[in-house]
Every structure is written in C-alpha cells, then in structure tokens.
Computed example of a mutant assay.
Amino acid sequence: MALREGDPAPDFNLPKDGGGSLALSDLKGRKVVLYAYPKDDTESCTKEAIAFNGLRAEFAAAGAEIIGISPDPARRHDKFKQKYGLAFPLVADESHAMLEPYGLWVEKSMYGRKYMGVERTTFLIDVHGRIARIWPKVKVAGHAEEVLAAVRAL
C-alpha cells in the first residue's frame, strides 16, 4: 500500500453523483470514512454500501462523513444510489486520479486472468486530514460496524 497510517491523505477533486464534484479538502475539520470499491451494483459492493448506509446516522453522530469511490462514472453512481436509497456521496474516479496515489489501482487475478482493478480498502481520515486507520483487502461482513467503532474511538 502506498500510504500509511499517520500520512496526510492526498487531496482529490472528482465528479460525484448528482452532478458537481467533491474535494477531500472541503471536508477538513471532519472525520471522513473513505471507502473504495470495485463496481456499483455488484453483490459485495452493494452489501458494503447498504451496510454503511444503514449506519449513516451513527457515523454522523460520531462526526464522520462517509464517501464511496469507484472507477464507475457518476451517471452509474446516480442509478446505484437511487436503486438502494443510499444517502452519502459516491465519487467517480474513471481516470484513477485518486485511486492510483492511494495505492488502490492494482493488478488482480481471477480464474488465472490478470487485470487491473480496485482493491477494496477503507481509510479513516481524521479532522486534520491525516490517515488514522487503513483497512486493506476488506471483507464486507461486519466491516461497517468495525469502522464505526474506530470512528467513535478517534
């Protein structure tokens, strides 16, 4: 992984669902849960989004913003959010401008075929813009709850 806990979180400014853009620097002074996922509307990615969405009130009460990011276009994010009633921003990184500096655009392998894709990873960024915690190679079950506990402890 390119980044480590304690490092400043690299800023980005990318298109988001619903139009407009989102910059990490706009959220300075707040805790940010930034989770990267491979593709909208796939089984694990949907489960992860629904889990974070189900706990969004608890994350807000703990002072944290949730942001999902994938290489899917913003139009696809719009459909994904609407289909599952997601209430947090989804950022589109089609050019991998954020995914590469964060070390998330990696070579993967499935059934012997190699390809480039997103490594499912979550970052907890503190109020000073530093990476407080990293969860690499996330397993979806129980993950949102584990991240919430870390947010509360921060």
Rank of each mutant, 00 (worst) to 15 (best):
A144D: 02
G54M: 03
G117Q: 04
G142R: 07
A51C: 10
P38C: 05
A97C: 09
V33L: 01
W135N: 05
L27P: 04
V32C: 03
V118Q: 00
K28N: 13
M98Q: 13
L148N: 04
P101R: 08
R75N: 15
A92L: 05
Y102T: 06
T122V: 09
H128T: 13
L124F: 08
E145Q: 12
K108C: 08
Q82D: 12
D40R: 01
V140M: 07
L124W: 07
D93Y: 02
P101C: 02
P101N: 05
W135E: 04
A144S: 04
I50E: 10
V147E: 00
L99H: 05
I69V: 11
S44R: 14
E48D: 10
V106I: 14
N53F: 07
G103E: 01
R120L: 00
L24N: 02
K47D: 14
Y115V: 06
R76D: 12
K39E: 15
A149M: 12
Y111T: 11
G117F: 04
L148T: 02
R30T: 13
M110T: 15
N53V: 05
I134Q: 04
E119Y: 10
G129A: 06
R133A: 14
I125C: 09
D72T: 05
P89Y: 05
Y102E: 03
A64W: 00
E48P: 05
E94M: 12
S95A: 15
G85Q: 03
G29S: 04
K137T: 12
M98W: 14
G112H: 07
G142S: 07
A23T: 06
R133S: 11
L55N: 00
K114N: 13
K139S: 15
D93H: 03
A92W: 06
E145Y: 10
K79I: 15
I69Y: 06
R120V: 04
I134S: 07
M116E: 14
Y35A: 00
F80H: 03
M110S: 13
F80M: 09
